[in-house]
Amino acid sequence: MFRSGLHRLKLCCLMGILLLVSPFAAASEADAPPRLAYLVSDLRIPFWSIMAGGVEQQAKELGYSVEVLSADNSARKELENTARALHDEVAGIILSPTNSSAAVTVLDLAEKAGVPVVIADIGTQGGEYVSYIGSDNEQGARELGQVLVKALEARGWSEGGVGIVAIPQKRENGKARTRGFVDALSSSGFQAAGIRQQVDFSYTETYTFSRELIESDPNLRALWLQGSDRYQGALDAIRDAGKEGEVLLVCFDAEPEFIEMIRSGQLVGAGMQQPRLIGEKAVTTLHAYRQSEPVPKRQKLPVLAVSPQNIDDLLPTIEKNVLGTGPK
């Protein structure tokens, strides 16, 4: 009894503090715009910050205030953010979880609190949510594969292997990327020569896997990085292997420098997700839900297969939806 009472006391104090610090504390609930929370895994990563921008922009347009809460890739913080959002009695949550498992807990908490959740990009292993918005990884990978094949063939190569430095294949997006890419290769004279799954996503890991793939197949024609951030490891590996110009590189996702690298041919192509678009779509979907409009359970947004040939056409879209550098 005493302990229980003590807990209640603590809870009351916490709630009081939160009310005091809240900028909305003074405003009445009726006057304030509906609030959304964007629970994002790590805003330090451009992909998510770009997506957050999309969320914020779209929310604003639809008359929501939005609270972007980054977990900084910490499960604990993600939960704390969830608790905070729920405590703030947000009208809805856009969730880009640290992982699909963590998403389940967030969804569970939100469900118990009666708060609708739209998931953006990272899937969930379970739980109740309004809709899932993600990239069409398979489509993007397939098109990227086709870009690579064209580039290889353009160099006069008709056959050879392609090494894959993959994100974990247990992830749905990883599987989809591999499936689409391999599907694109299957209609050409090239085939997947080997695959290494990233674990810690470090430079060293990327470099090492790249070297192993290069050395294991003398006929290797290209490396495909399923992620974007450690592309330098792959480039260094090609260079150190003395295969510059002999082994090409394609990446999934995008970095700002990719524009120039693709243009220069340093990078054959990149499958670029459109995080800002995802963010916007998430808010739109949540809004539709709140408006009691029917929303699809899963929505896949196209991935841009950027090559030197189309980069200039796609550049505005890339800057806006991919890099978040375009006009807001």
Partner: peptide, 14 residues
């Protein structure tokens, strides 16, 4: 216990 603390609840039982 951690979850209980995070959520500010006496207990978090799942």
């Amino acid at each position: 216990f951690q979850m209980a603390r995070i959520l500010g609840q006496p207990r978090y039982v799942s």
